[in-house]
């Protein structure tokens, strides 16, 4: 069980307020992802939930019980750190067993749980090694192993995959998702990575300067960003934001068109410009187009086979049904 409720939580370091009053509920079994620009308070929020920092005011409830003044060890949460934070002087087995040992569990039960976790995480052959003798991915698994043996009410992950290379990151991403499906335990996951956020989350929390900008499912956020910030933040490459006369045509202050919602042509289209850079990724091609009279650069995502080059004139047409409209305050116009 792990329903986590933040009620008017604030956090200041000295005079600097990092988290202004914030309300958030994470349902039991949910996979919640915190995203936002660097320094916006994602880690701080996670650490408040963990109890590694005191809240300045407000309350944190875990399963209906007030946990605000409970020490981290007693909150029943497990955390996986970006640096893995493995104990370098202990073997993998001892690392994974450490929380059980702290809980005073008997040796046989400790071993049983460690062996189970190790087999789930493919660590059985490495149990007697020290963390220093493991690869990055294996270390990450040990850190996860140490978290799961405790059967916590919720898992907290702070950018757990950011130290891994791209291929490993994808593998671990799938493993964590699978783990979530199997354990059905609440997970809170901080990341910078769009793909991680979109693919793993049941619920994404977009933060800016300690403020929640929007909460919703990945598709909600993609389809209906509540404001310009979320619109620009979710989606890769970023949504094209166009102000001025073109936006006025749609009765808006600003309009947003995602790169994948623009069709290109060599001969005719609603807009036109000159290709500055074309990036061929194989499956897709991104064109960065200048001199459109709309915005500095318009980014377009096209099929991998489309072949415009630097300096070519290109014509573009946005799909009318997925144009996002925003008012002067940057809020979405329904």
């Amino acid at each position: 069980m792990g329903r986590i409720v933040l009620d008017q939580v604030t956090k200041s370091f000295g005079d600097v307020t990092v988290i202004p009053p914030l309300d958030l509920t994470i349902e039991d079994g949910e996979f919640a992802v915190f995203v936002g620009p660097s320094g916006c308070g994602k880690s701080t929020l996670l650490r408040l939930i963990a109890g590694l920092e005191d809240v300045t005011s407000g309350a944190i409830r875990i399963d209906g019980q007030d946990a605000t003044d409970i020490v981290p060890a007693k909150r029943g949460l497990a955390m996986v750190f970006q640096s893995y934070a493995l104990y370098p002087h202990m073997s993998v087995r001892k690392n994974i067993a450490f929380p059980l040992r702290m809980a005073g569990m008997d040796r046989a039960e400790q071993d049983r749980r460690v062996d189970l976790a190790a087999s789930v995480l493919n660590l059985t052959d490495y149990l007697e090694r020290r963390p220093g003798q493991l690869s990055g991915g294996q270390r990450q698994r040990v850190a996860i192993g140490r978290a799961i043996v405790r059967e916590p009410a919720a898992f907290l992950f702070d950018e757990p995959l950011s130290n891994l290379d791209a291929a490993l990151r994808m593998g671990m991403r799938l493993e964590i998702s699978e783990l979530h499906k199997r354990l059905e335990t609440t997970m809170i996951y901080v990341t910078h990575d769009q793909v991680e956020a979109m693919t793993m989350a049941d619920k994404i929390v977009v933060l800016r300067a300690g403020h929640i900008e929007q909460v919703g499912s990945p598709l909600d956020l993609y389809r209906a960003p509540r404001n310009l910030f979320v619109a620009g933040f979710i989606g890769s490459p970023k949504m094209n934001l166009i102000a001025g006369a073109e936006a006025a045509k749609h009765d808006a202050h600003t309009i947003g068109v995602r790169p994948e919602h623009i069709t290109v042509s060599a001969t005719d289209g609603e807009w036109s410009g000159v290709v500055a850079v074309s990036e061929h990724l194989g499956s897709d091609t991104f064109f960065h187009v200048h001199d459109t009279g709309l915005a500095d650069t318009i980014t377009v995502r096209a099929d991998g086979e489309v072949g415009f080059r630097h300096g070519d004139r290109i014509h573009m047409t946005p799909r009318a049904d997925v144009i996002h409209r925003f008012d002067e305050q940057g809020l979405r116009i329904a």
């Binding site: 060890a73 955390m79 640096s83 929380p99």
Partner: peptide
């Protein structure tokens, strides 16, 4: 790294265990 001590705290170690075992 301070994170290792925090990890110990999350794992249920009190101040004494933290100093003694980690």
């Amino acid at each position: 790294p301070g994170e290792i001590l925090e990890a110990a705290r999350m794992d249920g170690a009190g101040l004494r265990e933290e100093i003694l075992y980690v």
